[in-house]
């Protein structure tokens, strides 16, 4: 492998290591804010376990959660780096390296035979999204199944714009205790059936300590559900709602809701070109 691709593979490995072992500061801060406001005694105990867990993971340099996820990878590519299969091979290699070095749980299986590849790669995974940019930047988003399994997409009617908050809230309500609340909710509005789901996931990449008034409105509605930390009841069910939207067909209104557990992991590394 050429040195650029070696550096890229190593950056992917490092970004995964960072994402799996240390929570982004904005997420940890949001958890502390929720804990400070929480009035339910059992829910407070759950936050105390979460904070103890984050300390142990950092000190021992081990994964925060045993569901180390499967990976969504975003690459920004400067003009000087050609888009070739070598780029994809390097990303796959980085995941194989991280599977051994972090270590990660081998999670990737054939969807029908359920045969495990043992290295967290497989046909079509990781999903790799390429975006033009000024530098070669690797972003990894490990996604666990507990929260991913609770995600939904709906093709609303163009006249149903007012129903978006209700739909998002109903998805969180249906998920209940299962996606490890307090959750972060990524919402994709517009685009096509497939791009709405991508928007919902990309929305999870931006910091959660800022919300628009519309995002705050939906977050408030969700927190009235009272599901609380781990579904044991409590004041905070949702730490943040993040929306990404795109244009859509005049006869369509796709809305995708991607649920993210409290362990909202992301890792970003720049690669020297």
């Amino acid at each position: 492998m050429d040195s650029l691709y070696k550096r890229l593979a190593s950056a992917v490995e490092q970004a995964i290591h960072q994402a799996e072992t240390v929570l982004p500061p904005d997420v940890e801060e949001a958890l502390h804010t929720a804990y400070d406001k929480e009035t339910n005694v059992i829910a407070r105990g759950e936050y105390e376990n979460i904070f103890a867990n984050l300390r142990v993971a950092k000190e021992k340099d081990v994964p925060i959660c045993q569901d180390t996820g499967i990976f969504v990878i975003y690459l920004t590519l400067p003009e000087t780096v050609p888009l070739t299969t070598k780029l994809y091979d390097a990303v796959f290699e980085g995941i194989r390296l991280a599977t051994k070095s972090v270590p990660l749980r081998p999670n990737a299986v054939d969807p029908v035979s359920r045969k495990n590849s043992r290295d967290n790669t497989g046909a079509g995974i990781p999903a790799i999204h390429i975006i033009p940019g000024d530098k070669l930047l690797v972003t990894v988003l490990p996604k666990g199944a507990g929260s991913e399994n609770m995600s939904q997409i709906k093709m609303l009617l163009p006249s149903d714009v007012g129903k978006i908050p209700g739909f998002v809230t109903s998805v969180v309500k249906d998920a209940g205790s299962r996606p490890c609340p307090p959750v972060i909710v990524g919402v994709g509005i517009g685009g096509t059936f497939d791009s709405a789901a991508s928007f919902a996931k990309e929305a999870l990449l931006s910091p959660i300590n800022v919300m628009t008034p519309f995002e705050k409105e939906i977050c408030g509605k969700i927190n009235e559900l009272g599901i609380g930390a781990m579904g044991l009841g409590g004041d905070t069910t949702c730490l943040a709602v993040k929306i990404k939207q795109g244009a859509c067909h005049t006869a369509s209104l796709p809305v995708a809701v991607n649920i993210q557990c409290w362990c909202s992991r992301r890792g970003i590394i720049e690669v020297e070109v």
Binding site: E46, I50, N53, V56, V62, P63, C65, M230
Partner: peptide, 11 residues
């Protein structure tokens, strides 16, 4: 019930 995601603490 044990807190979801608290894998390092459990270990």
């Amino acid at each position: 019930a044990f807190t979801g995601g608290c894998a390092a603490l459990a270990a």
